[in-house]
Design a protein around this nucleic acid. Sequence first.
DNA 1: CGTAACGTTGAACTGTCTCAAGATCCGTGG
DNA 2: CCACGGATCTTGAGACAGTTCAACGTTACG
Lengths: 259, 259
Amino acid sequence: MADQRSTRSQPGSGGLFNPKAQQRPGTVAFRDLPGGCAACQIRELAICQALSDEEIASLEAILTQQRYAPSQTLFYEGDPAQYVFNLTAGTLRLSKLLSDGRRQITGFLRTGDFLGFARDDAYTYTAEAVTQVEVCRFAITEFEALFQHFPQLEHRLLARASNELAEAQDQMLLLGRKSPTEKLASFLLRQMSKAEKMGEPSSPVRLPMGRSDIADYLGLTIETVSRSFTKLRKDGVLELPDPNTVVVRDLQRLEDMGE
Amino acid sequence: MADQRSTRSQPGSGGLFNPKAQQRPGTVAFRDLPGGCAACQIRELAICQALSDEEIASLEAILTQQRYAPSQTLFYEGDPAQYVFNLTAGTLRLSKLLSDGRRQITGFLRTGDFLGFARDDAYTYTAEAVTQVEVCRFAITEFEALFQHFPQLEHRLLARASNELAEAQDQMLLLGRKSPTEKLASFLLRQMSKAEKMGEPSSPVRLPMGRSDIADYLGLTIETVSRSFTKLRKDGVLELPDPNTVVVRDLQRLEDMGE
DNA sequence: CGTAACGTTGAACTGTCTCAAGATCCGTGG
DNA sequence: CCACGGATCTTGAGACAGTTCAACGTTACG
């Protein structure tokens, strides 16, 4: 019934049982962007997209840049929500836990994604770095104050939220009704399309997360994920030079399985 | 893409194979609200909440009221998105289909809920009436035009979207990691809290949807849903005077099972 | 070179689904 | 008023997909 051994403690993790967790060890606030937002590479991807100079300046005035090492936590489910974030580099996972340790990952975030909105002033999920991560961090109160003057910002957030909602519904269909192989195929297709959207090649897909993260994202065990990879490989749909690199050999068949 | 037929034809259904389906048989545009929005009972629940008189007037100018009979369809997944809706009475189900007919219900909507935002101008899910339903319908173009003048409206929608997103994540946790009994318990608890929020009694909960809808919402079969109900009943947690009425006998235990 | 984390594979188990039959409720018509 | 048919729900028995438990392989790193 329960997937008890939900692993979680990882090396270098600034987790609950690390006495220094409060200090977010390894987290660094830094300023290494000469020219500021104006020179930001990912402006086009993020909420900053198509904002006026005045708006950008207002955002820039209240942001702090931060770095997180792999498996470090940005915040825990239930923490009082103080900040919102814009991911400028790396991959993040959002997850929720049941009291016995079963975990569900609700999404992987990439460069350009936005996170942090909460309900009743508490985060409803945990956010952890999968890879090395860089974010722009804003105090929620300051961020929301900008809405008054820049409705465009809120408009952009609503568009993003609608999109996330549609993705969440796709994921519900996946979790509730797809077989393990279908789940994995859908997952890989989505990773590919996201990579493509960022100008990366879509065929040798690089998966930054491990099998355990994939399992908890797809509602499976790591063994079933591994077996599904093996099945797709034996069927000639994929090649796996290493566990984190997927070469698609037969896109048509992958698509047939995914939808 | 959508497999329209998917078992689900129900008596009185205005489905695809009904020759009059294009006309939405039984759908009635009506005006039976003397006094208009000003007199609307559910203003406090809906997006209209706390809008100025001017804003309400603008909304009222572009709205059409409509009625749908049980199992009638408001729109199908993939339809070009022309309208957004505010549900003023009854219960609605949102669902997505796989090509072979497997269905996932992504949510049940109640009085006061808002629906219709789409991606790329097409609806991403199907919306059907569970009970008799009444809605206020707005043309999307006209509705969005209001954002320019009334940012408050967009603010309200963002708040709703954030909330829906949090609920969607709860549902992912449910679908991916909970056992059938836990799923049913969580479902009942949520129905109870929603009923309570609308001033209805929380203990004899009325479930407007059938077992098949519950199954497709929880990612189970109807048989497993039925067996889970039976289990909760035999354990003394519930009573079931009839299949659509749930009396909670042991709330503590229900809560323990749900989370 | 040894150890630990991660991934893969195998064998057995078990929970959920599938298939099938019976029970219940409701509207309709004899 | 009661019999009938259809839809929905419940219950049972058996099959099977995915999990659990366990061992082994691989890679990275001190």
